[in-house]
Each structure stands twice: as C-alpha cells, then as structure tokens.
Design a protein around this nucleic acid. Sequence first.
DNA 1: GCCGTTTTCGGCCCGACTGTTTTCAGTCG
Length: 574
Amino acid sequence: MTNQEIAKILYEISAYLEMQDVAFKPRAYEKVAEVVESLSEPLTSIHSKGGIKAIQDVPGVGISIAETIEELIKTGHSKHYEELKKNTPVDLANLIRVEGLGPKKIKALYNKLGVRNLKDLEKSAKAGKIRKLAGFGPKSEENILKGLDFLSRSSGRFTLGAALPLVRETEDRLRGLKGVKKAQVAGSIRRWKETVGDVDILVVSDKAELVMDYFINMPEVGRVLAHGKTKSAITLKNGLDVDLRVLPPESYGSALAYFTGSKAHNVALRQIAINKGYKLNEYGLFKGERQIAGKTEEEIYKKLGLDYVEPELRELTGEVEAAQEHILPNLIKRSDLRGDLQVQTNWTDGEKSIKEMASAAMKSGLEYIVITDHTKRLAMTNGLDERRIVQQMKEIDKVNAGLKAKGLKFTILKGSECDILKDGTMDLSDSTLSKLDVVGASVHSHFNLPREDQTKRIQKAISNPSVDILFHPTGRLIQRREAYAVDMGAIIDSAKKTKTVLEIDAFPDRLDLKDEYIRQCVEVGVKMSIDSDAHTDSHFSVLEYGVAQARRGWAKRSDIINAWPVSKMLKFLK
DNA sequence: GCCGTTTTCGGCCCGACTGTTTTCAGTCG
C-alpha cells in the first residue's frame, strides 16, 4: 500500500468521524493523513525496518492510528474503517469532492434523502428535493448541480509547467492595477511543487474592492466561487482554481507565510509560537493584542528563533528542526548554473543547429553546453550511428573555433544521449563513447521489464566506464506516464559506487529525479546535474524548474556538477 | 486520538465566506 492510499483512508476515517459528530478525533486523523501524504519514505519501508514502533515515530501518530496503519500495510484492510463505512454506506470519497459538501451535509443528505453517491445526489438535486431540507435552500441545490457539472469536466491537478505561466501573467496584470503595491503568488506554486491543485495570490492594496472587481471579471474566469471584501475565489475556464486575498501591508509577510504553506509546516510554526506565548495567524505574530512581527516572513522566522526557511523546503520534512539548529543548507540557485549537460540539435530530433543552441545557451547566462543527440536505436529521431557522431564531433570543433575567433568564452562539449539497450549494453561502441567528453545514458524502450530486471539493466549501463550520467533516471512523465518499475535505492547505491551522476531533467513534465530521490542523493553524496533536455532554443528557460526541484531536494551548489566550472566538471567525470 | 520546557489530564489553529438563518453552522484553506 502506498502512502497516498493510506492517507486517503485516513482522510475518509476523519470524515466519517466528523459525520458522527465525534469531537477532536477527526482532526487527529486528518493531521496524520496530511503528514503521511508528504512523507518522503514509504510507510511500508518504515514499517519493515522498525515495525509499529517506527510508525509511531511519525508525528501525530499514536498507538491507535499506528495500529490502523499497520493493519493496512499487513492486510490491505482496516476493521475500524470498514465498520464506519458500514454504518454510513456512502461514497464519501467522491461526494466530498463536490464543492460545498462536507461530512455534515453529506450525512443530512443520506439520512433524509438516502443519497449514497454522486448519481443519487444529482437525481435529488434535479428533482428539487434538496432545497426543501432544513439547512439547505435553492442556492445550495443550484451549487450542488454546478459542483457536479464541474467535477465531471475537471481534470484535477495541473502540472506546474502548465499553471505557472498563466499565474505569472495574472500576477503581472494585478500588479499593474491602480492602488496595488504588491502581488505575489503563494501556495504550492511558490513552493514549486510539481503539480498544482489550486493557486493562491496575495495582493497588498488600499483599494481592495477595485482589485476584487477586476479579478472576478477577468476574461478567463469560468466561475466565481466566492466574492468578498478580502477574499475571492474563482475557477478559470480551463478548470484551475484561483484564490485571491487582499491584505494590509503590515500583514503581508505573515499572510505570505500562511498561504505559502505547507499546511503541516504552518502548524509547526504556530505550535512554536504558542510555546513561546505568542499567537501566529495570517495577520501577524502577536503577543497578546500587540503585533510583534508580520510585515515580512523573515522577521516572523527570526522572532520564532528560526533561520529563514526557503519556500521550497516548507514541507515539514526536517526543515523546522534544521532552522532551529541553524543548519539549513545553502540551496543551489539558478544563477549558480554554468552549463547544461543535455541539449539536442537538428542532427536528431531537436529543432535548431549546434550553433543556434550554443548562442541561446549563452544568452541564458551559461558558459558551456554538451551536445547530446540521440543514438541509432531511436530510429524515429534519426539517431546518430558511429559514423555520424564522428562527423558531429568535427562540426563541434568547427563551431568552437568560430566562437573563439569572435573572442567568445563559451565551450561546446561533445556528448551523447546514448540508448541503454534491453540487456544493459550501450547503443554505441565503447571505443566511440570513449572519444566523447560527456556520455549520458537513457532508457527509451522496454519500460515494462520486471523491477528486478530493469534495475539490473540500468546498473549494468552505469557501470560502463564511459557512462558519466544517467539521464531522466525513472522515465516518468508527470500525469501521463508512471515511472518504470525500478529500485531507485539500489540505483543510487550503484551510482555512488561507480561515480555516476544522476540527472535532474528540468523539463516540467519530467522533473526526473523527483525531490525525494534528490534528497537521498544529497544525503549519500551522489552528484547530480540539472539539465534542460532542450530541443529548441527557447527551452533553456526550463532550467528554473530543475533548479527548484533540486532545491526541494535540499541540493547545494556542490551537489550539482554543472554548477561547477567546466574544467572541474570534466575532471570529475569518469 | 494525540500530546506535554507550565500539563499524564485537559486541552486541541483559526479566520473568511456562504447560505441559511435572525445569531449561526458548515465548509474551506
């Protein structure tokens, strides 16, 4: 059972208890569900290492919830959960997704109208039965129908790459409004989470109503969910939910912290505030009635005795303790990147020439790139064979000479994105690979091998003395293709032994390595590269996603080899 | 159900908005 599946059941238990008016327990289950969701290690592995005792070490988990989790891991079932479900046999997981419906209303709908699932709900709403219930009215009935309609069309979460450009544009337009002093996106986008459920934007303005009016009337708005003086919420036509808050300047920092989250991180901050005799909310840090911080995030962390925590780290995975002990890492920045180790050209499936890609990389502030076109196994990309790659090496020499003649300090290195064949051997001969500056190895076929075989295949490839980097190590495409089955713990171990670099592919639908693997690499000392995987000249812009992902994995400049000068980087490679 | 640098008992984060009410419960984040 995955952490996500366990979290889902804990959320449901919480909702069932809430339904029955049980006090405090719902919050206890919900808290644990939130923690479990963002845990970097699978509960199954925590359990297999340390048993139920180790489960109890997860924050918020006591005897009772630990037993439920252990039961789920061992049997896939929970008696407690099934008992609750038997008492109120409703499709809680789906009903609760309807905007405006919570446990209490679902209970009333079940008790009075026998609503068990979305279908029943739609029937009752359409028959006009819901408006007659106590506590409901015509408006709630209408909202339920709207919510159902939205659910049937909604695609759920967005990739960060799809949401961020839209959000930046909205931010810019809000900044341009009269009376607006600041506009800043918070929420999971500010933490650079790879997918986005909804968007939170904060605005400092003394003309709140004007801002709200503008916001709910933007042309891309599909539906207005709430419209108040300080808070409004909309759904865009493409299904993305956006919340807007207008704040006074003295609360900007506390609101930014509050709405940036994560929720678990905030709860931890709040607890520290309480322990110090303060109160922390979105309006500031208070001692009694007096605000003692709130204008900036920095002063809030400082007053709580913490070092400033970068948004990418605020997932309650040890950053609060590290901030207390003043041992937070100095995270890598976009400006630290000097090179890009995966770039394709029109020799295979890229759009631009070697020269054009080099010039775009220079404009992006880089000092070197590695040309890594595909190899012959990927016939559909016109992959290079031994003969053509030798030609390409000559071409690179020529372009480098041209750059030097112009007095430009930029280096184009010779490389390859060489296919890993089914048996773990490489698509180009060792003698060819050994002539290249940088060899990347990639899996592009046989995604469905059994986990053990896939792991061995990749281990064999990276033990090749010419292979420097494993490109997009797990092959996932966010929301489109699962990672292939592979034991990443074993791959990271092998990378350490063979001195192989693991890539963080920065393309926003890959972000492969994901954050938790990056953190494992940092912990054991496996070096990584942040590469654009550029297929055209505009693609160097995706490097910022890769840097953010690296930061989410606690990576420093010393962990990322293309943040090093080219000579040091080359010396490090095999 | 969980937790403890006042506590092993007695507290639990908290404010905005909506739709129903006529002072508030439910939902959301």
